[in-house]
Structures are given as C-alpha cells and as structure tokens.
Amino acid sequence: MFEARLGQATILKKILDAIKDLLNEATFDCSDSGIQLQAMDNSHVSLVSLTLRSDGFDKFRCDRNLSMGMNLGSMAKILKCANNEDNVTMKAQDNADTVTIMFESANQEKVSDYEMKLMNLDQEHLGIPETDFSCVVRMPAMEFARICRDLAQFSESVVICCTKEGVKFSASGDVGTANIKLAQTGSVDKEEEAVIIEMQEPVTLTFACRYLNAFTKATPLSTQVQLSMCADVPLVVEYAIKDLGHIRYYLAPKIED
C-alpha cells in the first residue's frame, strides 16, 4: 500500500509545471524515504531529478517500494481539477496498474477522486557522480528566470562566466551582444534577494537557452535558485521545495566544435 498526502494541491501543480515541458512521462519511485524521480528529456541533453522526502508530507505510507510510470500530460489534466487549497492524496495498491489521486476541499464538503492508468516505462537510471564544483551561485529565482528569458532573444546559447567579482551571462547573435553582470550582494535585508558566490576557481561554460528557460518553470517553487558549475561537466540548477525536498536539473554544456 502506498499513500501520500499533501496539505495543498498547489505544490503538486507547481512541481508538475516544473517538469512537464521537459518530460512527457516519468517514473515516480516511491519508498519509505519518499518519492524520487529521475529522467532525461527526449533529446538526452538534460536530466531532471526530483526528491520529495516522506517527512514533508502530511501523511506518508509506503509498505513496499513502488515504481509508478506516469504520463505527465494525463497527470496535468487531473491536477487541473484541483483547487489550489485542496488536500491531495495519492494512493496505490502494491503491484497496482493504476494510481488514485484524491482532492478534498478544506471544509471536506467536496471530495473528488481520479484513477489514472500507470505505464511501464523502460527508463535508464543514471548514476550522478559527486562533484567538487568550481563555482556555486545562489541568486533570486525570479532574477535568473528574467535573465534566461531576456538573453534567449539574442542567441540559442548563453555563456555563463563566474569569477569572484560576480557572475556574467552573455549571449551573442545577429542582433549583437548582450551581457548581464550580477555582483555578489553586500548586505541585504532579505535573504531571498541575495546573490552569493562561492568560488574555488573561475569558470566559463556555454549552455542552450531553451533548456535554461525550461528549468525556470520551477521558479514558483522557490525564492532562490542555486547554479553549480565546473569546467566540462553539466550545470546543476537547483530549486529547493520548502520543507519537502528539491528539484535539480542537470544540463550538458555546449563545447567548441
């Protein structure tokens, strides 16, 4: 028996919004420690890794490890039927071929349930090595989304250059060149507005804008985003999900031809 309950459907809606542009379907691996999802996008350029800890749920029970392959388009249709403040419960029997998603209004006067067929997905699981990153940047998630959106107008690629002075995002194309520099913030009143750079050595990497823009669909989940970079390895873009877990996106760099 698997059962996981969250106080607000809005969190699940935001999580789905953060992955459904990259993935058509994905396997949710459930165990007593929580729910994990790892999947590459169709073109195998990026990888999404979602962790939801069992202690972040209002109720969590998972008697046996369970892998639930879900069509994310179908899940989006179901979640559209929930009000943001509804409780949401996911339930499945062991070895089931369906999952039940139930919404309850705060006053318990409306209860709806949706049974969704599960899929057998033959997904490769990749081992992600521990990396000592050269640069780790923490910045407001909205600012990162704005920069990715703005620079995508100028080029398919963005160059991220991080030094101890700050982080520079550049794009160059037919129109010309765009550069956006962010300095590390001195003192800020609000932690969520800070730009913090931890640098071991400077790094310059090139990434495809369309993937960065897809990652920023996670912006409603978190006030801050963390970018971890190291020469010649994938960028890690991480959004914390308060009290529940995190979503990490790995993006393979572009290299000189």
Binding site: L126, G127, Y250, D257
Partner: peptide
C-alpha cells in the same frame, strides 16, 4: 560554433 553534448556521456548507467 559550439556543439551540444549529451547528458548521458557524463553520467554512467546504473
């Protein structure tokens, strides 16, 4: 010009 690498070339299959 730059070439897009694949994520699976960095991470090993488990």
């Amino acid at each position: 010009s730059s070439k897009q690498t694949s994520i699976s070339s960095f991470f090993k299959k488990e």
